[in-house]
């Protein structure tokens, strides 16, 4: 549900979203060393594949957004990675629109970058395993919730009549946030044991 289709949002919101995403991607690409492109691409591909996994919840199923984890592992590079993933989802599956791409990138990438800083603050140097796991859970859950809140915000800013739907979007994402928090704890728990250097920790 993080893919807003075209035609819903108002022009000022679309322009602001495109500007923020362009600036974010530009800044991230300038910081990105060419030698790191394969690494960023392969992590982006993992998240693309993992976000297609559907978890059963009652009669329906949900899929994860994974922007918290993407943020933890990629930092600012999450901006172009998410841009590539969303462009591919639009072209391969028809999820989300083209003009609205900027807003969709913004909604997922800003929480990702925030989660990166949050994780670094909570986990510290990785010496305390409990803190690492807490950081992972918080980043995983908050990544989803912040995205849902941003989706709700851009909907409401586009028209008061979307307010009811916007509230529904946030509520619908609470179970996703819980699953994603548990999922992130497992992923980061494993990585901190097997390959701590990936998280920037000393082995």
């Amino acid at each position: 549900m993080a893919h807003i289709p075209d035609g819903v949002l108002s022009a000022p919101v679309l322009i602001a979203g495109a500007a923020v995403s362009l600036a974010g991607c530009g800044y991230a690409l300038r910081r990105l060393d060419e030698e790191r492109i394969p690494e960023v691409a392969i992590l982006a591909a993992v998240f693309f594949v993992a976000s297609l996994v559907h978890f059963p919840v009652g009669p329906t199923s949900v899929h994860l957004i994974l922007n918290g984890l993407t943020g933890i592992l990629l930092g600012w590079a999450a901006f172009p990675a998410i841009a590539v993933a969303l462009l591919l989802q639009a072209v391969l599956f028809g999820f989300g629109g083209l003009v609205v791409l900027g807003v969709n990138i913004m909604n997922m990438a800003i929480p990702a970058v925030l989660c990166c800083y949050l994780f670094q603050a909570v986990a510290g140097n990785g010496a305390n395993r409990q803190r690492v796991l807490w950081g992972a859970g918080l980043a995983g859950g908050l990544g989803v919730l912040l995205t849902a809140i941003m989706v709700a915000a851009v909907l409401t800013l586009s028209g008061r009549e979307f307010f009811a739907a916007a509230k529904l979007v946030v509520v619908a994402h609470v179970p996703v946030a819980l699953i994603e928090a548990a999922f992130s704890v497992a992923v980061i728990g494993l990585l901190s044991r097997v390959k701590p250097s990936l998280l920037g920790f000393q082995a």
Binding site: A45, V46, V49, A50, I179, A182, A186
Partner: peptide, 28 residues
């Protein structure tokens, strides 16, 4: 729909990350 499922798939993706990062080092 339980913690075991989420944790297991989490480990799966974690393992995928570890393997792929090593793959990317070879690619570079």
């Amino acid at each position: 729909c339980d913690l075991h499922t989420w944790r297991s798939v989490g480990y799966l993706v974690g393992m995928l990350l570890v393997r792929s990062i090593e793959r990317s080092e070879r690619i570079v």
